[in-house]
Design a protein around this nucleic acid. Structure first.
Length: 696
DNA sequence: GAGTTTGAAACT
DNA sequence: CAGTTTCAAACTC
């Protein structure tokens, strides 16, 4: 574990083509211009930044838990921020990073006062940066510590919140707290936070723009850092990735936090970390505040969680409060289901993630964000499928919108009604989605709660042992035109397919009993359904033809379907078909769990990063070069030997330190009869994708 | 809201 | 792997 926390060798940091790209980027230039640090340090910084990066994946994975959690007191977050510094400093300052050094750092950090000089630096920068563009680089700097261990990154956030947090967060007296009590409290906090999720909705409208902007920014940062990180050869992935998730969550949280802080400000509560950015300040100023505060903070959160892993065994005196928090973070980061699992992505309440918020708002407007095109997650279909069911065929646009909103409400926070499974089986939607049950759930004897974390984890582990794909998204969008072992299914325009296929007997695959239909995808060869009439694509559509030399017939069928899709895409008159349409493909990626077992983790494409080129589907070069080298060893079609995954998949190997999540975005032209896959593929290496529940 | 239907998940 | 049971969501009334 320590090794993972180590700073990558400088040799590894040596700029690669990707790094060069990054250095050429505005962000890099800005950093260089601002920082007195030499180029060599810049590299370090970059590296450090990389650890902070990976926003994109995380942004894609925000889980309700995280979202809710992020609403917890800032002090909690801040604590994470401080704690990770240890490892980072140690690691950046000394190649031979040792736990002793880390502990020293801990002590150092334990002091309320951090290096004042570093603070000054950051604070000055903060003051000088009036806009977001400049803020971002600065934000990045927070995580960029100089090799000599200076707390250069100790930023504005520390200054702002130190008073509040200092005594509370690092107080050694907290070490005596009862663990159980804290966990209970943690759980209660989560419950409260999740309650807030419902409230959040009302605030989202105001903050949606924020979220969208921040989301883009975050993704950009992530991408850049990811690219940089590529140079580290994934050695630092552990510390890096988690932060991404937290970061995104935080960023997203901002609107809400902002509101909360506003209240705090009125009540004189100094705890509002972002409150300084309020009070009528220009949006950019507020954003500035957000980034300056939340970003660094979240970065730490992950590290802390990871660090906890390292120290949990031998650090008895660790602050219990901290432990509790860290534990939670750890869960988020470690478990695909809890906090990071893509299954839950679509179910994340609007605004819980930048994507969900921005994309949903776009959806409401009937827009299809380019940056999210073609992305399919397991549940991404749920919304379309739900509000676009057959019965909606005759609905007016207004009714459909209403229905959508209704669905959004219900889907926003996944809830279950389990009675006998204790919410510890895949029957439970919450559990299956990698979410803890919350108050809105009507479950009985529920064990799927943070207080039963161990049980949950163990159960998940068992389930995964039986079926590694158990928690993987059930629906995978595959690359059009790329054949796989499943045959030519993917030549159909609606290339999304159910991972396992359905087994319908009576529903004719026309009701939501059918997982394929529910997912808004056509049945495939994998299905064992009888009398398939799936409006998204019948199993027999290609079944017989693709077997033999009747590929043409199959393609014809696909063509027919595509024309059908086209109609839907244009008019959206057929809700059923709206699912495979780009509208639902706005989620960042799909998870191909099993790939993790065989395939290196990679992330292809950060839609946001290339969003500017998105308009011109042909112009992907600007993105591609950066990542091209990263694609080495990764088949263009993603996973040649793994059916139905291919591109546009998120590949994660919980057990692989070098795991890369791979996802590509299809350049889906809603007006065309087929889904076009953008050749742009970005790889974010070192991003822990779906950590397994299994102990590392 | 209660009861039924359905098919996935779990079990044997 | 197949058959059966269990389960909870989807659906119907």
């Amino acid at each position: 574990m320590e090794k993972k926390m180590d700073t990558p060798d400088k040799t590894q940091i040596t700029p690669t083509s990707n790094l060069c790209k990054f250095e050429d980027s505005p962000v890099s230039k800005y950093i260089d211009s601002l920082s007195p640090i030499e180029l060599a340090k810049s590299r370090q910084t970059d590296n450090g930044f990389s650890s902070l990066a990976f926003l994109s994946p995380s942004s894609l994975f925000p889980s309700p838990q995280i979202t809710c959690h992020r609403e917890s007191r800032f002090s909690v977050k801040r604590h994470h921020f401080l704690e990770p510094l240890n490892s980072r400093v140690a690691r950046s300052g000394h190649e031979s990073n040792t736990s002793e050094e880390a502990s020293k750092v801990d002590e150092h950090l334990g002091c309320p006062n951090n290096d004042s000089s570093s603070k000054e630096t950051s604070s000055d920068q903060v003051d000088e940066q009036p806009n977001l563009a400049t803020d971002l680089p600065r934000t990045l700097k927070y995580d960029c510590r100089s090799p000599d261990g200076d707390f250069e990154p100790c930023d504005e956030i520390l200054k702002k919140t130190n008073v509040e947090v200092a005594g509370q967060e690092r107080s050694p007296f907290q070490c005596n707290r009862d663990k159980w009590e804290e966990r209970q409290q943690s759980f209660q906090n989560e419950r409260n936070l999740r309650k807030i999720c419902g409230i959040k909705r009302s605030e989202e409208s105001a903050g949606s723009d924020w979220v969208a902007v921040l989301s883009d920014v975050a993704d950009m940062l992530t991408m850049n850092s990811s690219i940089i990180h590529e140079n580290t050869d994934g050695q630092d992935w552990r510390t890096t990735n988690p932060g991404t998730t937290s970061f995104i969550s935080n960023i997203l949280q901002f609107p809400l936090d902002k509101a909360n802080n506003s209240e705090n400000a009125e009540s004189g509560d100094p705890s509002g970390s972002c409150k300084q950015s309020e009070s009528g300040e220009p949006v950019m100023d507020q954003m500035h505040g957000i980034l300056s505060t939340c970003l660094p903070d979240e970065l730490v959160v992950n590290d802390s969680g990871l660090k906890k892993d390292d120290k949990e065994g031998n650090c008895n005196q660790s602050n219990h409060q901290q432990f509790s928090i860290r534990r939670r973070c750890l869960v988020f980061e470690k478990s695909p289901g809890f906090g990071l699992h893509l299954n839950s992505l679509p179910n994340i309440p609007k605004g819980q993630s930048p994507l969900s918020k921005s994309t949903l708002s776009s959806m409401n407007r009937g827009e299809v964000p380019d940056d999210n095109k073609g992305v399919v997650t397991e549940n991404s279909y749920e919304m379309p499928a739900t509000f676009g069911g057959n019965e909606a065929d005759h609905n007016s646009p207004e009714k459909k919108r209403q229905k959508f909103e209704l669905v959004e409400e219900s889907v926003a926070c996944k809830r279950c009604n389990c009675k006998r499974s204790k919410c510890l089986k895949l029957y439970c939607d919450c559990f299956a989605a990698g979410l803890y049950c919350i108050e809105p759930c009507s479950c009985q004897d529920c064990f799927n709660k943070p207080i039963h974390e161990n049980v949950v984890l163990e159960t998940r582990r068992q389930i995964e042992s039986r079926n590694p794909l158990a928690f993987a998204p059930k629906v995978i969008r595959t690359t059009n035109g790329v054949s796989d072992s499943m045959g030519d299914i993917n030549k159909t325009p609606a290339s999304a397919r159910h991972k396992r296929g359905c087994n319908c007997k009576r529903s004719s695959c026309l009701k939501k009993y059918c997982e394929c239909f529910q997912a808004g995808v056509g049945c495939s060869l994998s299905c064992r359904c009888e009398g398939c009439k799936n409006s998204f694509g019948r199993k027999d559509g290609c079944e017989s033809e693709s077997d033999g030399d009747n590929l043409e017939a199959c393609e014809k069928n696909a063509s027919e379907k595509s024309s059908h899709d086209t109609v839907i895409s244009k008019g959206q008159e057929h809700p059923n078909l709206s699912v495979p349409s780009p509208d639902i493909s706005r989620l960042p990626f799909a998870y191909t769990g099993k790939l993790a077992a065989f395939f290196p983790h990679s992330i292809k494409s950060s839609p946001q990063l290339c969003s500017t080129q998105e308009q011109g589907s042909s112009d992907t070069s600007s993105c591609k070069p950066k990542l091209e080298s990263n694609l080495d060893g990764i088949p263009e079609n993603g996973t040649p030997e793994i059916p139905k995954h291919k591109c546009f998949t998120l590949v994660s190997n919980p057990t692989s330190p070098n795991c890369k999540r791979v996802f590509s975005t299809p350049n889906h032209d809603s007006t065309s009869s087929s889904t076009k896959w953008c050749s742009r593929k970005l790889i974010l290496r070192s991003v822990p994708s779906f950590p397994s529940f299994s102990p590392l």
